[in-house]
Design a protein around this nucleic acid. Structure first.
Lengths: 337, 337
DNA sequence: GTGAAAGCGCTAACAG
DNA sequence: CTGTTAGCGCTTTCAC
């Protein structure tokens, strides 16, 4: 048995290479009995087209690249990215795309891989996890007309397609809930203010307080970095301000905050109520279980893949801006009074 | 400026396509001044060979596939896999390979992707995370002569190359440490006994007890599933046996065990000492901080890539069996008496 | 040491 | 509806 190629299938089914190609690619203009015959041979031989040859001829690869920039800090201590990865791979599998992963952890890797990413030969399109302000990759991607979608909105969102979670709305709901429960001194531990997630969740906090006629007190706002340790130290500092509730801009930081409170002998929610953001599995088993804003992370992953595929088939314009809703999950940490 | 191809570079540098190809691929038999001239043109134009065309001609892709089978349970609640991914991508970047990710989460995905993986057109070699006994993929990979390396030893390890952590040795050290500290009723929460990691860590526990002349008491051995929840319920059951120490076969399960102990009002390490396994970042911030066996996860990731590349360049035989050492990290949870 | 030429396996325009 | 033909961009004999 010789190498299984289109030519070979054509020979075995008594037709030509192009007809077989048409059948393989589900194109019209093939008489149904011929199609049947070819499909039979394909099935019997277990033929599958060679991806490399196909890529070369079609000028596309069937591969989607996922880029996680170096600046995405708590890369793998935070279960957020892995969860997202799960959603993205699922969607890629469903749509017959292969996912290539680019985790950029050092400047050297960045320097080496950015050009390769921009050259756009390895894949048809790219998904980029939003990092912090001023990542040079984004601007260059736009210039090079690389088809790409961001996860999380970039700072200047006009020309770029993205899928985002409703950070402002989520934070608003979380803080509103605390207000409804009657808390008076509601603090927040924010994400880094050079990320849009950090900025937007802070905005939601501010908005909620203003809506209810409360003033925002800068001393109750502590900027941190989305890590457990960051949440821990931010909470320690915040304690001097004696808040009775705190909205923490990520579950991972909230776990750190809980640890700080426990260590300080402060009861949750008795003395201080805590609400997180993300809705990661770990938030359900913390001590006490964490009230949080749950993002539909898997669906975000799926949506971003679908959006990219849409761009690949219908063109870059107009930029797609998609915001996914999220929901309040009430557990013990916010109290109930 | 026309499309940048080999042909174009040849024209610009006044030589032929083949000579340019030789230069690009660092082959000998090119006069050094010609080489210089060509390299100059390449640098000026920013030429890079097209991966698809190259794959087609060379019959290899420069891509490594990472397969995480469905049976790998606590896929993304456990930070282990993400960490590994970090090591693997780093190594891939360093060796100019691209990583494609195959997370198989459903039977459907498995059915769809296994054949594609076996067909071996999408990549040069495969890394497979060891799952549980009887995964049909492994046997088929061997039959199809797919170059691959496993992370974690398979049940029958004779023909398969793998990189493993020293599970038996690590568990042995952990339990020996507990014995040295004077604990008398040392229990264990094991991983699933249809995984080699589960079996081997249990073996290390048994070996350590036997070396010190202690008998193993089946009632002190509780099988679980490497999840937080599993560790939680296993610990609850174990409490009826009144152990004074417990070796938990993964940090994630150990966190669950700590939660169970806390809920039962049992002091750690006062009433019960706890030792984990893995050395994940989360183990450092648990309450109390967890004594654990730290695996060199990043280095395992790097090693597995290097092993695969070795196989790709020097052939499948003989199977490589690599065991990485790990170390005891002493923190508060094991007490100190 | 260099160039011409024949593929690698597929797609797609074109002619029939 | 079907087959012929000309590429896709690179590697690799094989002459010179």
């Amino acid at each position: 048995m010789s190498k299984l190629t289109l030519e070979e299938i054509a020979r075995l089914s008594g037709s030509s290479r192009s007809t077989v190609s048409r059948v393989i690619n589900n194109q019209p203009n093939v008489k149904s009995d011929v199609r049947e015959r070819i499909l039979k041979v394909v099935a019997e031989t277990g033929y599958h087209p060679d991806p490399a040859a196909r890529s070369l001829a079609r000028r596309r690869t069937g591969v989607i690249g996922l880029v996680v920039p170096r600046a995405v800090g708590a890369l793998f201590t935070d279960p957020y990215i892995p969860r997202l990865l799960q959603g993205i791979t699922q969607a890629c599998n469903a749509h017959d795309y292969t996912l290539s992963l680019f985790l950029l952890q050092t400047i050297e890797e960045e320097a080496k891989l950015y050009p390769r990413i921009l050259r756009m030969q390895l894949f048809d399109g790219v998904i980029i996890q939003a990092a912090q302000r001023g990542d040079p990759l984004i601007g260059q991607m736009v210039e090079h007309e690389v088809p790409f979608v961001m996860i999380g909105r970039p700072l200047d969102d006009s020309r770029v397609s993205f899928v985002n979670t409703d950070n402002i709305g989520g934070a608003y709901i979380a803080v509103s809930h605390l207000i409804q429960l009657g808390y008076q001194r509601i603090a927040t531990i924010t994400g880094p203010q050079n990320t849009t997630a950090g900025v937007d969740r802070r905005q939601g906090y501010v908005d909620a307080l203003q809506t209810r006629g409360c003033e925002t007190d800068e001393r109750l706002i502590m900027e941190s970095d989305f890590t457990e340790q960051g949440g821990f130290t931010a909470m320690q500092r915040l304690l001097t301000q004696q808040p009775d509730a705190v909205f923490v801009a990520s579950d991972t930081m909230a776990l750190g905050a809980l640890r700080a409170l426990r260590q300080a002998g402060v009861s949750v929610p008795g003395d201080v109520a805590v609400v997180g953001f993300d809705g990661l599995p770990t938030s359900a088993t913390s001590e006490p279980p964490l009230t949080t804003i749950r993002q539909p992370i898997l669906r975000i992953g799926a949506k971003v893949v679908e959006t990219l595929i849409d761009i690949l088939t219908h063109g870059l314009e107009p930029p797609r801006h998609i915001v996914m809703p999220n929901e309040l999950v009430i557990r013990a940490s916010c109290g109930d009074r």
